[in-house]
């Protein structure tokens, strides 16, 4: 039997970069745009992009309900930036109608590090891995989190140290963009957790 592929949610955002990183790690990847494709994957990456846009397209494509179910059933998932926002418990200061899957017990603030002018690159120390490049683009800031959440990396951008890479069970959330760098360390961590 052929193993089910890994999916990258391909509604909007930097899908191509995630697909390239995973393909580079010899993983079979499918760009997920439909309910049928979502049903078939063994894990999912939710890329960077605009969380309000991706949320809306999840609704119009009919995938919201199925993805919510699959996440409740423990579908392994890695969300970067907008992906983290979609997996969060709540969005602080979001739009009134902003919803999220509440897969990871974190409360995030959209653009918590500032608008585009404040977007930055730094080095992030990841537990058990070491230093990885951290590209933060209008990045969400994790402002609070529950005991269920394992914090694997933090960053202090002048306003106190906050988590930037977290895990809760099969769900991983990352406020920066590992897919925009040469390092595949974060994707490898996620892949290792699948087996």
């Amino acid at each position: 039997m052929v193993a089910a592929p890994l999916g990258v949610l391909a509604l909007q955002g930097d899908v191509r970069e995630h697909v390239a990183v995973l393909a580079g790690l010899d993983v079979e990847v499918v760009a997920v745009r439909t309910v049928e494709q979502l049903r078939a994957v063994r894990g999912l990456v939710i890329p960077g992009g605009e969380s309000t846009t991706i949320a809306r397209l999840l609704e119009t494509s009919g995938m919201r309900t199925l993805l919510a179910e699959r996440l409740r059933d423990g579908l392994p998932v890695l969300g970067t930036c907008a992906g983290l926002i979609l997996l969060s418990r709540s969005v602080v200061d979001g739009r009134d109608d902003q919803w999220s899957f509440a897969t990871i017990d974190v409360d995030v603030r959209r653009n918590g590090f500032g608008r585009q002018i404040a977007s930055f690159e730094t080095v992030v120390e990841v537990e058990g891995v070491g230093e990885v490049p951290g590209v933060f683009i209008r990045a969400p800031k994790i402002e609070s989190w529950s005991e269920q959440v394992t914090v694997l990396a933090t960053h202090d951008h002048g306003t106190g140290r906050t988590p930037v890479l977290v895990r809760q069970g099969a769900a991983w959330g990352c406020s920066f963009h590992p897919e925009l760098t040469d390092s595949s360390a974060i994707h490898e961590l996620f892949l290792a957790s699948l087996s």
Partner: peptide, 22 residues
């Protein structure tokens, strides 16, 4: 001051990457 960098080509082009498909 925290040795991070703003305004690099990567973060500038990176925002455009995030808008793709939109």
């Amino acid at each position: 001051s925290d040795s991070s960098v703003v305004g690099s080509a990567r973060v500038k082009r990176g925002l455009a990457d995030m808008l793709r498909g939109g």
